[in-house]
Amino acid sequence: MSKVRLADIAKMANVSKTTVSMVLNDKNINVSEETRKNIKRIAEELNYIPDTVARSLSTKKTNILGIINPDIENPFFSEMVKAIEKKAEYYKYSIILCNSYNDYKKEEKYLKLLISKRVDGVIVLSGGKGSTAIDTLKKNKIPFVVVDRYIESEESYSGVFCDNDKGIDIGVRYLFDKGKRNIAFIRGEEELTAANLRYNAFEKTAKDLGIFNKNLVEEESFTIEGGKNSTQKLMEKKEKVDAIFYSSDVMALGGMKYLIRNGYKVPEDISVLGYDNINIASLIEPELTTIAQPIYEMGKKACELLIEMIDEQKEEKIIYLDPKLVERSTVL
């Protein structure tokens, strides 16, 4: 079957191609409501699919945004992508989602793909020492916004972040006020800037309180398996531990699985504190006490900021949002 063209719709509706184009793109045009409805009905019956490439050549826009996502299996990023997609839909933008799985070569490959698709802008959720996203996007003059995970670069860029220093400080002081003095910290991988920021904040606050113990720090990936493995390594040291602060909720889920399977009671034996407040944190048993990042708001703000840069040529800016403590059942 041949592709349906604007000319086909115009012929059936007995109007010009320009009229069809204006109506289907919801542009202001002096036609009756009956004609407008007729054009849209014919387009739907013929299953007309707009040629976005052709349209982009004339309008210089595709109304498509790209998202570079580090791990679709991580609920934190899934929730954020959902927020971005909803806000993009509101502004009549479509989304191309690319999962890099924290592989910077794959990230670069997807960036080149998005550029070749003439996307109007990109939201970058992955980042770290190996990321070349900023250089690639700047070189190709593509508007972009970095969210959650900082990218180390000498270039300026727009970003939406939660205040990691504040969030970690709130968490450590909360555990300290609960009488915990042997607080372990499970950090993310060193190649991720956000992981380093959270660890540095933990070290600073723990030292300020006089409770920092390097032996109670483990490094692993921001995954359930990472949380499980790091907790195993921590507990095999036979150090005294009365609380574990995980730098992501998914790590905390893996850590709790290890603890409970090995006879530890949470929170009676060991208190557990997470970071992010993903949806599942309130669904597990015991419910996870955590430092909440405003995940949905971060995604929404990132999309709004990017579209402002595209449609209104707004300047780059950084937005910081505040974390907060969500008390549930894993800290005693």
Rank of each mutant, 00 (worst) to 15 (best):
S94M: 10
T19D: 00
I29H: 11
V31S: 09
V81W: 08
K317L: 07
V326E: 07
Y275G: 05
E327A: 07
Y174S: 05
D169W: 08
D135H: 15
I96H: 11
E34L: 14
D169S: 14
S94A: 11
A133H: 09
G188L: 07
R5H: 12
E219V: 13
T289C: 03
Y90C: 06
I307M: 06
Y101N: 13
E285F: 14
E155R: 15
I67A: 09
A54W: 14
N277K: 09
L57P: 04
R118Y: 09
E203Y: 10
T290L: 00
M298E: 08
D169H: 14
Y150S: 07
N38H: 15
K257A: 04
V81E: 08
P286N: 10
A83C: 06
I68Y: 06
L332V: 03
I134F: 13
F245T: 01
R149N: 10
R149Y: 02
K166H: 04
D71Y: 14
V15I: 11
G179C: 09
T52I: 13
V146N: 01
N213Q: 11
K112V: 02
K317F: 04
R36N: 12
I39E: 00
V31G: 07
R181M: 07
Y101R: 12
I318K: 15
I270Q: 07
S156H: 14
A302I: 04
N213C: 10
S16L: 05
N74L: 06
S116V: 08
G66P: 06
L305Q: 04
E315S: 13
Y90A: 13
R173H: 10
G274L: 05
I319R: 05
K214M: 10
S247L: 08
N164G: 00
M298K: 08
A184R: 04
T290I: 05
L125M: 13
E44K: 15
I142P: 01
Y91S: 08
K37D: 08
E73W: 09
G66T: 02
K17C: 02
G299W: 06
D208W: 05
E312V: 08
V172W: 06
I318P: 01
V81L: 09
I168K: 03
S131K: 14
E155G: 04
V217D: 02
S153F: 10
N28Y: 15
I284V: 15
A195E: 01
K178P: 01
E44H: 12
S116K: 14
E308G: 12
S221D: 00
K27I: 02
E107I: 02
M298Q: 09
V4Y: 07
S153I: 10
V272M: 00
R187D: 03
T193A: 13
R149M: 08
T290H: 03
D311M: 07
S221R: 10
Q232Y: 12
T193K: 14
F202S: 04
A252M: 05
L197H: 01
Y91V: 03
K257E: 11
S271W: 11
L113A: 12
V146Y: 00
A7M: 13
I319D: 03
T289P: 00
K301C: 09
K109P: 00
Y104F: 14
E316W: 10
Y90W: 12
I270G: 03
F76E: 02
E316F: 11
T132L: 13
V53F: 13
E189N: 15
L216D: 03
N28S: 15
Y275H: 11
K178N: 12
E73L: 15
V4G: 02
V122W: 07
K129M: 13
F76A: 00
Y90F: 13
I319Y: 09
I115T: 03
A195V: 06
